[in-house]
Design a protein around this nucleic acid. Structure first.
Lengths: 164, 164
DNA sequence: GCCAACTACTTTAACTTTCAACTAACTCGA
DNA sequence: TCGAGTTAGTTGAAAGTTAAAGTAGTTGGC
């Protein structure tokens, strides 16, 4: 099937405005959140890893599960764990039920590190994001992005604009 | 001034929901948009650079200006330009008015490349994002993120939670 | 018209992320 | 119980990003 040349629907001004406001503000806000965390030697991604770990029972999770819920690749998690292990924030523990597996375990030092960063990060999320939303905005936003996410499975746009 | 220990306002469930829905869906959507572009050997960042360049008069912009409007650092733009220059999509041209300066210039090949990718990318933005928003959602979102962005200048959250 | 301060852009080096390949262990059907 | 296929996690190399320093050209006050 040849690509169709004609039927591209470009964005109208309203669509363009929504898209660009969202994309640009998001990028800048995430940069700001990262720079707010920089004083704690943390990026948002590392923060998320540690936060998830600190919430887990025993502050302990299988590597794969941690990678999944913290939304990083397994390989990235492996590499970051090496760094965080060197910093004394986490360690690895063998898994007796499945000898291929490992647990990521948060150390006391790691817990203290994230406990120290958390108030700043939460303050930062409020300051730079939530404070600018009304309660209704919060509810609308959650609805919108839940919709966006739920449609995000498996579709792939081909060159001719159809999806499979 | 010593950090205050007490007054951390953690996120309530509604705030948490809004924040996490937004962050998680955004990350996944951006991943999807990038993977939709992968077939054209483009990332979103490179697409943005080329798109801005293709809109400029003469398809030509000073490096600094391009870096600014495409939201990449100067150093990153330098590096990417080297790659895109090797691909034959852009070239650099000396600036006669200011001999420190250079123009990034899009080649015909570069223009064809982005012309080819654009319909897919726009389709992808619709499919994965705009299609899930009503007209009112679009307007609300633009308002919210304009507010977020306008408050994003110069504030920095300190450890004690105050801003300066 | 000199020079200190600044600007435009590039480069280098350190670091991070990704991709593909790898090891080791588990599963399950014949 | 064998072995094909899968899963858990790591690794190394390549690619990408960033921060700091470097080069070269410009500007403005004296």
């Amino acid at each position: 099937m040849a690509p169709t040349k004609t039927d591209v629907r470009w964005l109208n001004p309203r669509e363009m405005k929504a898209w660009r406001s969202y994309i640009i503000a998001s990028r800048r806000m995430l940069e700001a959140l990262d720079s707010d965390l920089a004083g704690f030697e943390l990026t948002m991604a590392d923060y998320e890893v540690l936060a998830q770990l600190s919430d887990a029972p025993g502050r302990k999770l299988r590597m794969s599960e941690l990678a999944e819920i913290a939304m990083v690749s397994k390989s990235r998690l492996s590499h970051r764990m090496k760094v965080m292990e060197a910093a004394g924030w986490v360690k690895r523990e063998e898994c007796p039920e499945d000898r291929r597996g490992y647990f990521a375990v948060m150390t006391d030092k790691g817990f203290k590190a994230i406990e120290k960063a958390a108030p700043t990060h939460v303050g930062s999320v409020r300051n730079r994001f939530l404070d600018h939303l009304t309660v209704k905005d919060q509810e609308d936003l959650a609805k919108i992005f839940d919709r966006v996410q739920s449609q995000l499975r498996g579709q792939f746009i081909e060159e001719d604009g159809t999806s499979k």
